[in-house]
Design a protein around this nucleic acid. Structure first.
Lengths: 128, 128
DNA sequence: GGTCTTGTTGATAATGATTATCACTAGCAC
DNA sequence: GTGCTAGTGATAATCATTATCAACAAGACC
């Protein structure tokens, strides 16, 4: 199973990296459609899932749907997300990593992983 | 809109507090049904949503479904969850609270909230 | 360029969790 | 006990996501 390069995957990757914050697959698809691309919905879902697996995109669950965002590959980081406009800032948190690992160990848990996201209202949205 | 006390809500609350870890609404419903209760699925969903709002239950999203768990009301805490059996330990993390608040402030975000969950394999599941 | 192999696409159907509907039931204040 | 109305539950509706599968096209090879 050799991966092929298709314009569809590139289009999804581009659309993702153009977006300011987290976007849903549906939103990304209609955005692409509006800008003239005839890409299919199923393909957008597949491309996003692939990007997430390959570490080129981060994802999170909100209100029963998955949101995606381009991320800087190879680095472990978390997010500070505006709950109004979706604006997202990548944050690093070595202290939190260490804390999570030690808490897991204290209770006899191995293979620790964690979900850490911070939400708030960004400066722009506060004015509105 | 005055709330009423019904045996259905009590049944859901009891079933929740009996459970070791996080459970889905569906699982809780079939559990109740198996133990002889004629409770309806919609009611279980409503009861769980209410408990979550009232702070008597915590919830998290996993693989596209909402999981619930009874929690000690009035205290802010996070969870250490076995990814195999669902066993859950409540953990407090003042350091993480402070960190989240300060990170938000540094980037001009207000009204910070956060999602922090640690997953791992519990001692029992490691042996299996 | 032509051709072949097979990964990829996309319209659509299927799935599965959750929510809305609405007639009926049952708390609870009086 | 009566009346008012919140709560219930069978079921239909919704909505995001995944599976299906025939048609398509990327890349390797000549």
């Amino acid at each position: 199973m050799v991966k092929r390069v298709t314009w569809q995957r590139e289009a999804v990757r581009d659309a993702l990296s153009t977006s300011e914050g987290f976007v849903s697959a549906q939103a990304l698809h209609s955005g692409l459609r509006e800008s003239g691309s005839p890409i299919g919905l199923a393909t957008v879902y597949r491309a996003l899932a692939d990007l997430a697996v390959e570490g080129e995109a981060d994802s999170l669950q909100q209100e029963g749907e998955s949101l995606y965002r381009a991320c800087t590959p190879g680095t472990h980081h978390h997010h500070l997300i505006c709950r109004n406009c979706g604006l997202t800032v990548e944050i690093e948190a070595d202290a939190v990593e260490a804390w999570a690992a030690s808490v897991a160990a204290q209770h006899g848990f191995t293979q620790p992983s964690h979900v850490v996201d911070v939400f708030g209202l960004c400066a722009n949205c506060q004015r509105a």
